[in-house]
Amino acid sequence: MIIYEAKDWWGALKHFHTSFSIRVLLRRVGLVSLYGILLTLIDQHVIDVNLPFDGTLFSLLGITLSLLLVFRTNTAYDRFWEGRRQWGSLVNYSRNLAVLLDALLPDDATNNRIYFAQTLSNFALALKGHLRTGVDFSELDDPGDGELQALTQYAHVPSRIAALLLRRTQTLRQDQIVNDADLITIRLYHQALLDITGACERIKRTPIPFSYSFFIKLFITVYVLLIPFVLVETYGYFAIVATTLAAYALIGIEMIGDEIEEPFGLDCNDLPLNQIAQTIRRNMHEILGVTPSVTVAPKAEADYIKVN
């Protein structure tokens, strides 16, 4: 995720060329600009390429395209914001569960405190990897008894970690450290962790329908290709500038939608899942009063790109 100062207008603009998305956009706009230059030169020096297009009709097509892009962008941002809400809920539920366990566990129950701190941390880190390119087991803490090694055998690691959490709470009940009422409360928070996992998987695995995305891309392509034909007769060489600006706006908005509709990836504007998961890890150990066994892996991807 790009971190920037919203009020620093020029500070943001000076990093215009540093974004990967912007570089891809500029290449596409450059191709459209070359197309506009070629068509304009042909019109001015070879043959009249003006099409019998009514300007009013072309304006109506532009309005229709604008409405489609607004809906497309809003839909993509809804998915982005829903993903952020789910991870915000994961932070809250993890903290609430850790606070509850801290109150229930005796101060000298060091093994249990370490286990829950590590396992809750592992859940967030495993979910991050599960939603991205796969779980990096080197990031996870080892609670002992071969649990970390056993996790490598499971396809859905977050669910297995959740199962281990529930098994441990049942052990606390058998040892009479918690009672039935406490166990019911713990299960509510435990269920919330799996609900968040399912919601994130729904966002990741249910993209915007292909037919809708294809139609908008095709509409933008045809519209941009027709602009020089409509404008070159009236505006001459200025049609090149108009075509370039229109391509930049339309293609750029569509690319924004493509980038943010899947918020759990590694694009520069995706959610900073690594930092959120590491925040949960620090909070779990702090609340339960134990020291993290290992430091944050230095190879963990950087989710934040600061613009200043």
Results as ranks from 00 to 15, higher is better:
N111Y: 06
A103N: 14
A155N: 14
A103Y: 05
Q153I: 03
F137H: 04
H130R: 09
A109H: 14
T119C: 07
A150N: 15
W81N: 07
K128E: 05
L140Y: 07
L127Q: 12
W81Q: 07
R132N: 13
L131K: 09
Y115K: 12
A155D: 11
W87S: 01
G88A: 08
R113G: 02
N111A: 14
R84A: 09
T119M: 15
T171V: 10
G144N: 11
L140R: 08
Q153P: 07
F116D: 06
G134A: 04
N112D: 15
D142L: 00
D107V: 07
A163Q: 15
Q118V: 05
D175F: 02
F137S: 07
G88K: 09
H130E: 06
L90I: 07
Q118C: 03
P143W: 01
A124H: 01
A109P: 14
A163M: 13
G134T: 09
F80E: 01
G146W: 06
L127A: 09
L125S: 13
L172N: 15
L166M: 13
A109R: 13
Q86L: 13
G146H: 12
S138L: 14
A103M: 12
S89L: 12
R95M: 01
L172C: 12
D108Y: 14
V91A: 10
A150D: 10
S121I: 05
R167W: 04
R167Q: 12
G144T: 00
W87A: 00
I114F: 09
L151W: 09
L97R: 12
G129R: 02
L172F: 01
S159E: 14
F80T: 00
D102F: 03
V99M: 13
L125W: 01
D107M: 12
Y154P: 00
R173C: 05
A98M: 02
A150F: 06
N111D: 15
L90R: 00
N111I: 14
Y115H: 13
N112Y: 08
G88D: 13
A162G: 09
F116L: 07
V157D: 05
W87N: 03
G134D: 07
L140Q: 05
E147W: 10
Y154Q: 14
T133V: 10
A124E: 00
W87V: 00
V157Y: 01
F123V: 12
T152S: 13
G83V: 04
A98N: 13
A155C: 04
Q149N: 15
D107P: 11
G146N: 03
R160C: 02
W81V: 07
D145T: 11
L120T: 11
A103S: 15
G129P: 03
S89A: 10
R113E: 03
Q86Y: 09
L97E: 14
N122S: 12
N111E: 07
